[in-house]
C-alpha cells in the first residue's frame, strides 16, 4: 500500500544503471512521502539479484524468476506489473525511459487506467489544485490534492518545460532516461525484505506469445556518459564531413563526441551520440558546444557540465547564456585553430 515502486530492468542477470539511478530517486521520494521503496525484478536465473539493489535503500524486493522472462517480451512483464499493482496499489511507479520501459510503461498504464509521463527530467512531490468544472454560481470547483508526483519534462520539441500531475489514478507513472538521476549507494548493508513470487500466479501461459529468435547486444562504442570532456556538434556544424573536425579535436583532448538532436536528425552524427532529453545526459568537466543553438531539450542533457564553451556564429544563441566562454565564430573557422593551438601549446 502507498509504496513507491521501481521496475528494475536487467541485462542477463545484471540490474541496469538506469534502474539503480531510479532507486536512488525513488528512495528520496519515499522518504518525502514517508512510505516504503519497493522494486520489481523479472528475469531468469536471478539467484542473489537482490544484493544488487538493496544497498540503494529498497525495503521490499519482488523477484519474478522464470525461464520465459528473459529476454524481455511485452506481455509477461505487463502481466506481472498489472497483477502485482492490483494487489499492492502503489502510489508511484518509475521505470527507465529505455526501449523496455517505453514498451512496458504504456501497456501497464493502459491496463490500469493510470497516467504515464515519458522522459521526465525532474520528479518532485507537491500539492495540486485541480479545477473540475463550475458550481451552480459559476464559480470554479477546485479539488485539492496533497503530496502528488510532479512529473517534469521538456515538451514540444524541448521548447517548454511542463509539469504533469495525475492526481486521481494510481500508480502515478513516469519514465526517466539513463543518466538523468544520480545513483548513490545508501547503505551497503541495508536490510530489506525479499519476496520470490510464484510467476505462474501472475503470468498465464498464454501470455508468452512473442519469441525472441535472435538477440545481439553490443557494448557501447563510446563512453559519452562518463567522458570528462565532451565535444558536441549541432546543426550549425553544417555537414557530416565537418563533424570530422569535432572527432579530431576530441582525439587531441581525449574527449568524446556528442551531438544535438538537430545534428542527428540531419544525419551528421549517429543516434547513439545524441545528448539531451531524448538522448544521453552528460555531466563532463568541460563541454564544448559547436554550432549548437541550445534548445531546452538539449540543455536538459548537459546543463550540469563544469565549464561550458560555446562556439557559435550567432551571438544570441540561447546556449551562450549558460556558457562560461563564448566564441563568436563559425565552427569551420574556430575548430581548426583550437586543434592547432592545442597541439602547439602541449608539445
Amino acid at each position: 500500500m502507498d509504496s513507491v515502486y521501481v521496475y528494475c530492468e536487467i541485462e542477463g542477470t545484471t540490474v541496469k544503471d538506469v534502474s539503480l539511478e531510479l532507486l536512488t530517486k525513488g528512495r528520496k521520494l519515499a522518504n518525502t512521502l514517508g512510505v516504503k521503496l519497493e522494486c520489481v525484478i523479472a528475469g531468469a536465473g536471478l539467484d542473489g539479484v537482490e544484493k544488487q539493489v538493496l544497498p540503494f535503500g529498497v525495503d521490499k524486493v519482488h523477484i519474478f524468476d522464470a525461464p520465459g522472462l528473459f529476454p524481455y517480451t511485452s506481455n509477461p512483464h505487463t502481466s506481472i506489473l498489472v497483477n502485482l499493482f492490483k494487489e499492492e496499489d502503489p502510489q508511484i511507479c518509475l521505470m527507465g525511459a529505455t526501449v523496455i520501459g517505453r514498451d512496458l510503461g504504456p501497456r501497464v498504464s493502459s491496463a490500469l487506467f493510470s497516467g504515464l509521463t515519458a522522459d521526465c527530467t525532474e520528479l518532485e512531490i507537491g500539492d495540486f489544485d485541480m479545477t473540475c468544472g463550475l458550481d451552480a454560481d459559476k464559480k470554479p470547483i477546485v479539488k485539492h490534492f496533497e503530496n502528488k508526483l510532479y512529473q517534469i519534462r521538456p515538451a514540444f520539441g524541448g521548447n517548454i518545460v511542463a509539469t504533469i500531475v495525475n492526481p486521481e489514478h494510481r500508480p502515478q507513472m513516469a519514465t526517466v532516461r539513463e543518466g538523468v538521476m544520480k545513483k548513490e549507494v545508501l547503505d551497503p548493508n541495508y536490510k530489506g525484505e525479499v519476496i520470490r513470487h510464484d510467476v505462474a500466479k501472475y503470468v498465464p501461459a498464454a501470455e508468452y506469445v512473442v519469441k525472441v529468435l535472435d538477440r545481439h547486444v553490443e557494448q557501447a562504442k563510446h563512453n559519452l556518459k562518463g567522458a570528462p570532456i565532451v565535444v558536441a556538434g549541432g546543426y550549425g556544424v553544417g555537414s557530416k564531413e565537418n563533424f570530422d573536425m569535432l572527432f579530431e579535436l576530441a582525439k587531441e583532448l581525449h574527449a568524446e563526441v556528442g551531438a544535438s538532436r538537430a545534428a542527428v536528425d540531419a544525419g551528421f552524427a549517429d543516434h547513439d551520440r545524441q545528448i539531451g532529453q531524448t538522448g544521453v545526459t552528460v555531466r563532463p568537466k568541460v563541454y564544448i558546444a559547436c554550432g549548437i543553438s541550445g534548445q531546452i531539450q538539449h540543455i536538459a542533457g548537459m546543463q550540469d557540465s563544469g565549464i561550458i564553451i560555446s562556439i557559435n556564429s550567432d551571438p544570441n544563441a540561447p546556449i551562450n547564456s549558460i556558457a562560461d566562454y563564448v566564441i563568436n565564430g563559425t565552427v569551420e573557422e574556430v575548430l581548426p585553430k583550437m586543434i592547432k593551438y592545442y597541439k602547439q601549446n602541449t608539445k
Partner: peptide
C-alpha cells in the same frame, strides 16, 4: 488521467 499543472519557458 494526466493534467498539465504548469508550463513555463
Amino acid at each position: 488521467p494526466t493534467n498539465v499543472k504548469a508550463v513555463k519557458n
